[in-house]
Simulated assay, not measured.
Amino acid sequence: METRPDPTVVTPPETQPPRPAPVPPEPSAVHAYGPLLARAETATAQGDYEQALALLERAQRIDPDSAEVYLHLARTYAAQGQTDRSRATAERGMLYCRGDRECAALRALIR
C-alpha cells in the first residue's frame, strides 16, 4: 500500500549545507617550474648533468606540454654528449612551441 504525505502537514524547507570557501587559484605552471629551470641551468653549468636532468624531469611533471622544458632538456642532453637523445627531445618539444625564439632554438638542436 502506498502512502501519500498529508497536505495539511507543513514540512520545513530543507536547509542547504554551507558552501565551502572558494579555492584560491593555482599559480601558473611557469611560476611553479621556473625555479627548477634556473637550478637546472646552474647544475648544467657546473657539469652536474644528473642533477640538472632530475630537476628538469620534475619541471616536466608540472607542465608536460612546455616547450621551454623540452628545450632545457635537449640542451642538457647535448651538453652531456647525448646528441640522439637531444635531437629526439627537441623534436618532441616542437609539438608544443609557441614562440619564434623557442621554435628556432628547438630547430637548431634538431639539425
Rank of each mutant, 00 (worst) to 15 (best):
E68S: 14
S66D: 06
H31S: 14
R75P: 07
R111D: 14
A43I: 08
G47W: 07
L106H: 05
A79M: 10
A78P: 01
I62C: 07
A54P: 02
Y70W: 05
A67D: 11
A90D: 07
V23F: 05
M94T: 10
T15Y: 02
G93E: 01
G47Y: 04
P27V: 15
G81N: 09
L56G: 12
A21H: 00
Q51G: 11
R98M: 11
T76L: 05
D65W: 12
S28K: 14
A105N: 03
R19T: 13
L56D: 12
S28I: 14
L37I: 07
H72F: 06
P12A: 12
E26C: 03
E91P: 07
Y49C: 07
A54V: 00
P7S: 01
D6H: 13
V9L: 12
A105S: 08
Y77C: 01
M1D: 14
M1P: 15
A40R: 00
Q60R: 12
Q82H: 09
A29Q: 04
C97G: 04
A88Q: 11
A108D: 12
G47C: 02
P25T: 10
A38Q: 14
R75D: 11
Q51K: 13
L106F: 01
E41S: 05
T11Y: 14
A40L: 00
T89E: 02
Y96V: 09
A104P: 00
G81D: 09
G93I: 04
E57C: 03
V10M: 15
Y70M: 08
Q82L: 12
L73Y: 02
S66P: 08
A104G: 03
A90Q: 04
Q60N: 05
R87P: 04
P7G: 02
E102W: 01
D65C: 10
Y33P: 10
V10C: 12
E26Y: 07
E41K: 05
Y49I: 10
R107E: 09
A38I: 10
G34Y: 05
S66F: 08
A32V: 14
P35R: 01
R92W: 02
T44Q: 08
A43Q: 07
L95Q: 14
T8V: 11
T3Q: 14
L55E: 10
E50I: 08
R107M: 02
T11S: 13
R58V: 03
D63R: 03
A105W: 03
Q80T: 04
L95P: 09
M94I: 08
E14L: 14
S66W: 03
C103S: 01
Q46A: 15
Q60G: 06
L37W: 03
R61M: 10
P17D: 13
D65E: 14
D100W: 06
A88R: 09
Y49F: 15
A67G: 15
R98H: 08
A79L: 09
P5T: 11
P20K: 00
R39I: 04
D48G: 02
A52V: 08
L36F: 02
D100V: 11
E14H: 13
T42L: 15
L55S: 07
P17T: 13
A40P: 00
L36T: 05
C103A: 07
V69D: 06
A59H: 02
Y70K: 09
L71T: 02
A105R: 05
H31T: 13
R92V: 06
L109W: 07
Y96F: 15
R87T: 09
P5Y: 04
E2W: 08
D84M: 12
D65L: 13
L106C: 01
P22F: 06
E2N: 15
C103Y: 01
